[in-house]
């Protein structure tokens, strides 16, 4: 039971972080389908930090530096999306998809190169971080508390306050609803959209490192993040682009994702004799059902997906 709670919370944290990232990007008017790729690159940034930092480092410093690595990688990578979609007015769907493929391919190439350089016989794309991982986890009576659970809550509060209570957030949302009107009162739509995409990069990177620290202590980068970026988009839509609702949606999805990890621990679930593949499919099936029921009255930002062209004002 504790295990189920632990996994639910950690997966919910991942989904919430990434979905909040998507929420910022979409409120500024850019659909960020590249979240999956951003997660992979963010995870790579964090994992590289863990690999190269000395294990004698104090846990607090370790946590901070790993997070910094993930955020920086995520922000850097998302600037590829921002540049293409905002400045060059590229199709946001194509660029997002390209970034997803590029993320996994680039991470695989980089990790393999590092592994092979260290040991010519090692051609795997795996980074292991058994020792540094301990800095993130506190064991409370068998419940493994991960710092990311707290970070996710803090990020949620900040995201909510910035979006609804500050001039910056309200202006950003204006750019996603009616960029022409926003521009006419002196708001730079390009700058706001860049900010939205870069923030989504930071949250996406954070979600990525959080995901590979959940449960396992080594990561094979060839596998990417198994569609988690898209699950986060489903969470965002289910949450109707509102931070608090996103948090609740993330808990629901996190629960179903956690089930596939821990269902063997429940006798009555084992007795049902359902193949493990069904549990693996569960989060995706649930998200399809949820989307079917919530997309009809969707409150997506009105101008999302449409490149801003000043001459159209």
């Amino acid at each position: 039971m504790t295990l189920l709670l632990q996994y639910t919370l950690i997966f919910a944290s991942v989904l919430m972080l990434v979905a909040l990232g998507g929420c910022y990007s979409e409120h500024s008017g850019v659909i960020n389908l590249g979240l999956e790729g951003i997660m992979v690159i963010g995870a790579l940034g964090g994992a590289l930090m863990m690999r190269y930092l000395p294990s004698t480092l104090s846990p607090v410093l370790m946590v901070i530096l790993v997070i910094l690595g993930a955020v920086l990688f995520g922000v850097g990578y998302s600037s590829l999306l921002a540049f293409a979609c905002i400045n060059l007015k590229a199709d946001q769907t194509i660029v997002g998809t390209a970034l997803n493929m590029l993320g996994t391919a680039a991470a695989t190439v980089i990790v393999k190169a590092i592994n092979t350089a260290a040991n010519p016989d090692d051609v795997s794309s795996t980074i292991s971080y058994v020792q540094p991982k301990r800095a993130f986890i506190i064991n409370i009576n068998g419940f493994e508390f991960n710092w990311f659970m707290l970070i996710a809550v803090v990020v949620l509060v900040i995201a909510y306050v910035v979006l609804y209570k500050t001039k910056f957030g309200l202006r950003m949302m204006a750019c996603g609803e009616h960029p022409q009107a926003a521009n006419s009162v002196g708001i730079s739509v390009y700058k706001m959209r860049w900010a939205g995409v870069l923030i989504s990069g930071a949250f996406g990177g954070l979600g990525g490192i959080c995901y590979i620290l959940a449960g396992v202590s080594e990561w094979k980068f060839e596998n990417g993040v198994a569609g988690f970026g898209f699950l986060a988009l489903a969470v965002m839509i289910f949450g109707q682009w509102k931070p608090l609702r996103i948090a609740l949606a993330a808990l629901l999805f996190g629960f179903f994702r956690a089930l596939s990890n821990v269902y063997v621990g429940f006798d009555f679930l084992l007795a049902l004799n359902i193949p493990s593949a069904v549990y693996n499919m569960m989060p995706y099936i649930i998200s399809l059902l949820v989307l079917a029921f919530t997309s009809k009255k969707s409150r997506a930002p009105k101008a999302e997906g449409i490149p801003y062209d000043k001459s159209m004002r």
């Binding site: 590229a90 390209a98 493929m101 590029l102």
Partner: peptide
């Protein structure tokens, strides 16, 4: 040459090409 590089380099190139295809309009 597998002692230096991995075959995924071609995945990298084809995904770069898709990214650049986004610029076709431009």
């Amino acid at each position: 040459d597998k002692t230096m590089y991995c075959s995924q380099i071609s995945d990298l190139i084809s995904s770069l090409i898709i990214y650049l295809c986004g610029f076709v309009f431009f």
